[in-house]
Design a protein around this nucleic acid. Structure first.
Lengths: 143, 143
DNA sequence: AAAATTATTGCAACTATGTTGCAATAACAA
DNA sequence: TTGTTATTGCAACATAGTTGCAATAATTTT
């Protein structure tokens, strides 16, 4: 039998943080944005719960951290994760782009179920600054 | 001044493991494949060194583990990471595909420097077995 | 070939991200 | 208001990876 869910303060807080952020967030981001004290375990459990409900999806960054963002076109049955994630090498934010990705054809024999794609580059806010002083992409800690 | 590098037994071992594996490997894989005792720190340091040399690249799996594979078209100046990685949901191996990826056009204002793409699906070996007995993708607990 | 130099290794302790068991707390139903 | 039980906080744990340092072993120098 399905465990019934409760609408708690903690969940509301986490959800509002997610809803108010244009970019995907990692645990530290939540910690910083939540005024009230909230345990690490609680934050992770709530986020995991949202993922199980199909409301939130995870993005694993190259830094070993997991980022969370609201799903826009997902259901609990089917996660539509096959879209693009963008990481700005200058301001370090991670964005979900709703555009679906098209992958160049796989070698024959391979079947694609899902694709998660993390593109790095400059976001519109940071692009104009690119040549500020011959700025190097902040150490592209290579994948 | 550049620190001069030494050609040690440990490096040769790690390199031969890499060279003999068709798929990308995580730390545990190295541990299993290396007969001699070798410290965790040593393995990680050697792999990191290879990465710095541009000989090996990292792939971060969704399970929090980092996978390592020989580069085929990289130099120490420029990592050609913008290719596809494939994870078989059945046999759990991770492969590098040398085919470059083409990403559907980004929204305007965004500039792409690099893209790392992890596609999940069935590899040729596992594809024929897909419907064996209405087989579910083996609960994606990757390696 | 032996001695000197210093990159590399092994060890142990540590960091960081995330998870789990359990008693206390707080949603929600009655 | 009271009872039920999902949820929280705490503390301890798990896992992936890193770091300082003395011992070891590749190279270079003699």
């Amino acid at each position: 039998m399905e465990k019934l869910k409760r609408n708690t303060k903690a969940k509301q807080l986490i959800m509002s943080v997610l809803a108010n952020s244009p970019s995907a967030l990692c645990y530290d981001d939540f910690e910083r944005r939540i005024p009230a004290r909230m345990d690490k375990a609680t934050v992770y459990r709530i986020l995991q719960g949202f993922c199980d409900d199909g409301v939130v999806h995870k993005i694993s960054g190259e830094n070993g951290k997991t980022y969370y963002a609201l799903c826009h076109h997902c259901s609990s049955e089917r996660h539509n994760d096959s879209h693009l994630h963008f990481r700005c090498v200058r301001c370090a934010t991670i964005l979900c782009m709703d555009e679906p990705i098209s992958i160049s054809p796989l070698p024959s024999g391979y079947t694609m179920l899902e694709a998660s794609c993390l593109v790095s580059g400059y976001c519109p806010d940071c692009l104009p600054l690119r040549d500020e002083k011959h700025l190097q992409p902040t150490k592209t800690t290579t994948t």
